[in-house]
Write a protein that binds this DNA or RNA. Structure first.
Length: 212
DNA sequence: ACCCAGGTGGCCC
DNA sequence: GGGCCACATGGG
């Protein structure tokens, strides 16, 4: 399969997705943790709750009561785990970077930053890469379950995270805008057409899909 | 009453 | 390297 051609088709069919919806890089990072294994609608509610309580900055979240964070993010599920993780993440930003997202991202090699993020509790491959791309403006292509499913349907055998990421990064133009948009488009496509019960009518991929 | 959601970490072999 | 499991609310 040719990712660039797929990207063109999806963009033409769906239009721009305008990811990542957030008011700040920190909001992107917190959203990236909250959105694990849940719907974006739930994350929006949680983010709204945090905002209402003034808890959308590293300093405020780092000092908040864990029980309060749990209550505010409950709709996203796994809320005890996630509350501890976003608090610990905020404390890490506070102690290591004085709460400055700018200091976190500026003058840092991407792969070093990636290793550093991966070492944190609750930040795995996809979350780290979403943060790097959408909050850090790094040329990293995140692989999520939908991207895996779509590339499988397109006949691509590779399933290993790093190899799949390398494949997309090798075959896409080196453009932040393209990376951001394509990842979002793949999610959109999979949601509408590649669920377990496939809804293939109207799928913009047509004959390219080799399901089964 | 199921099944799924923009994963991660722990444990096992 | 892989396969299973817990984590948990909310919507179809």
């Amino acid at each position: 399969m040719n990712p660039s051609r797929i990207y063109g088709k999806l963009l033409k069919h769906f239009g721009k997705q305008h990811w990542w919806p957030a008011d700040s890089a920190f909001e992107v990072m917190i959203g990236a943790i909250l959105t694990q294994q849940t719907t974006w609608l739930s994350v929006e509610k949680a983010i709204e709750n945090l905002k209402k309580h003034g808890l959308l900055s590293p300093a405020s979240l780092a000092g908040a009561k864990t029980g309060l964070i749990e209550r505010l993010i409950r709709p996203t599920g796994f809320y005890k785990q996630k509350a501890g993780r976003i608090k610990a993440f905020s404390q890490y930003l506070r102690s290591r970077y004085n709460g400055s997202i700018y200091r976190l991202f500026t003058k840092r090699q991407t792969h070093k930053l990636r290793e550093e993020l991966l070492a944190l509790d609750g930040i795995g491959n996809e979350t780290a890469d979403s943060i790097l791309l959408y909050a850090g403006e790094r040329l990293i292509f995140p692989i999520d379950a939908y991207t895996r499913r779509v590339s499988g349907r397109l006949g691509h055998k590779e399933d290993d995270y790093e190899r799949l990421r390398a494949f997309f990064e090798r075959n896409l133009p080196r453009s932040l805008a393209v990376y951001k948009e394509f990842h979002a488009l793949l999610v959109r496509l999979a949601k509408e057409h590649c669920r377990i019960k496939p809804l293939c009518s109207g799928c913009p991929l047509g004959e390219e899909c080799k399901r089964g």
